[in-house]
């Protein structure tokens, strides 16, 4: 039963390998957003460390939106999505495979790079650990929400305005709890509360979004 999802995972891995440096696009985008923010502020700005959690989460959200733009579009155009819809394997499971692949090859590199950005934003001590934990816990939800946005807009020539407009309302709770965890740690409070809330939002996304993506995949004109 899960063979289908693993097959999709393998396919995505080969595709990203053959696409060359394209997988690095979200990473570069993430670095640009963080650097621009730091250079935008006056050097050694005192408030930079406090604003850092929000900057990291916003950069992650923007990088994921850029990264997921063509996740489903090439498949919809090449007809692969239509084949998936007709395959005997349960479609939500195939979509889950695709979304996990997207998390692995787009969101995970960003989460691994995030500590460098935190150092660049002069975050200290406790907050770095809490924010990294929040990124680990929250990034599945964020990448699934952007994946759903991509699935919904797959059949359109270019998603343009639509992807952010669909993704923004769904990603707000994740950003709120994510940066809330880091801020709580900065004030010395324990960051467990927001992290648990973030984990619950992530689990809700992991359980629900594949079904929504399956319904979105069925929409594509054959």
């Amino acid at each position: 039963m899960t063979g289908g999802a693993l097959a999709i995972l393998r396919r995505e891995w080969m595709l990203t390998r053959h696409r060359g440096a394209n997988w690095a696009q979200p990473l570069v985008f993430f670095a640009v957003v963080v650097t621009a923010f730091v250079l935008g502020a006056e050097p050694e700005a005192p408030w930079l460390a406090e604003a850092a959690p929000a900057v990291v989460w916003v950069a992650l959200l923007l990088a994921l939106i850029v990264g997921s733009e063509r996740a489903f579009r090439d498949d919809a155009r090449s007809g692969f999505l239509q084949q998936l819809v007709r395959s005997p394997a349960p479609l939500p499971l195939l979509m889950f495979g695709k979304l996990v692949a997207q998390w692995l090859f787009t969101a995970l590199p960003l989460v691994l790079v995030a500590p460098l950005a935190m150092v660049a934003l002069q975050m200290q001590g406790e907050a770095v650990g809490a924010l990294w934990a929040a990124l680990w816990v929250g990034s599945p939800a964020l990448s699934m929400v952007t994946g759903l946005g991509a699935a919904l807009t797959a059949s359109l020539p270019r998603a343009g305005l639509l992807l952010p407009l669909c993704v923004l309302p769904l990603s707000l709770p994740i950003v709120i709890f994510g940066s809330g965890a880091a801020r709580a740690a900065e004030h010395g409070l324990s960051a467990a509360g927001p992290l648990y809330l973030l984990a619950s939002v992530s689990l809700l996304c992991i359980c629900g979004i594949p079904f929504a993506c399956a319904a979105a995949a069925k929409l594509q004109p054959t």
């Binding site: 309302p169 709770p173 809330g180």
Partner: peptide, 22 residues
Amino acid sequence: AAALLAVVGWVNVPIVRYSVDW
């Protein structure tokens, strides 16, 4: 497609409300 977004959004409204309250 619009129906799908409306339903997913509907699930999201209480979550946003709670997270903003928090």
